[in-house]
Design a protein around this nucleic acid. Structure first.
Lengths: 154, 154
DNA sequence: CGTAAAATTGAAATATTATAACCTAAGGGC
DNA sequence: GCCCTTAGGTTATAATATTTCAATTTTACG
């Protein structure tokens, strides 16, 4: 759980839960205990986490712990727009600016494993420029970068 | 095997094999029968293909057919730079301009399944601009778009 | 050639990630 | 309360990928 950023991480978690809660109430959806716990676990740090790494942690908390349980919660959170899937890692990470489906971009450090979501404005611009050159209707855009972050380089 | 492009596909295959062959000889590597056959199968059309879809086709040709066989060939071809992996699909596709590791971008049509590799220049530009904004050493860049291509829209 | 080292392949087992199917229980509107 | 919809429990299985070790082929080189 190396935490390369120096910040108040409880704030991250709290904010994420709050946002999820208000999105749910806006949309008449339910942030059930399992769903909330999965979201908290995803936000325990800034590293993408795999579905099967969530299972034992849910079990510890006394929740049911079978693959469909966690995948259902993940699907819900993805749909709600508060979590993204990083497909090159088969792993999930919290969204910094949730609330709607949007083009995504991540940088994943091969050293510390932290994933940083790239500024949505920049990614949207890129997505739009790619779209313009394609003569196709673009439904999703996902960008995944890997390398070494500044902290790990030094 | 819907072939939405109207083109001489044998030319695609032939070119791909030729390039792989010359890359191998440049680098003192061997394009063995299995490797060549896997590359041909990947190039049988412009749709990404899964490792487990290659297996029975290899078996038909009398090749050994077990997961490690095909994954080893795929790893070799990826390393050689003549094939890319589309991680959102767990599938593989031939590279249009092979020979070195480079930032990649694909558009995958949800209708016909065809994948189009985006112009490497454009992708490199995007990758560079992202890199500049990140203060990190970027090792890989992969962009995956999905949507509906022009042919499928009509 | 002949042989040793390296690369490649064969084969069996298993790990990892994800979904299907079907049933039970809980929440919410009337 | 009753009904309907949503959510969760449970079992099984599908889909993707890797580990391990042995056997074979190729290559380098004396």
């Amino acid at each position: 759980m190396s935490q390369s950023h120096d910040h108040d991480h409880h704030h991250c978690i709290h904010t994420a839960i709050d946002r999820a809660r208000s999105l749910c109430s806006e949309r008449g959806l339910r942030l059930t205990p399992i769903r909330q716990r999965v979201l908290e676990l995803i936000w325990q740090n800034h590293q993408p986490i795999g579905a099967y790494d969530l299972l034992p942690q849910l079990a510890e908390d006394g929740f049911n712990s079978a693959p469909p349980t966690v995948y259902r919660a993940l699907d819900f959170l993805l749909e709600l727009g508060v979590v993204h899937r990083i497909s090159s890692l088969n792993a999930f990470i919290g969204c910094d600016h949730p609330g709607h489906q949007h083009p995504t971009g991540f940088f994943v450090c091969q050293g510390c494993g932290n994933a940083t979501e790239l500024p949505i404005d920049a990614i949207t611009t890129l997505s739009d420029s790619l779209t313009a050159s394609l003569d196709a209707d673009i439904a999703t855009c996902n960008i995944e970068l890997s390398g070494t972050c500044r902290d790990c380089r030094n």
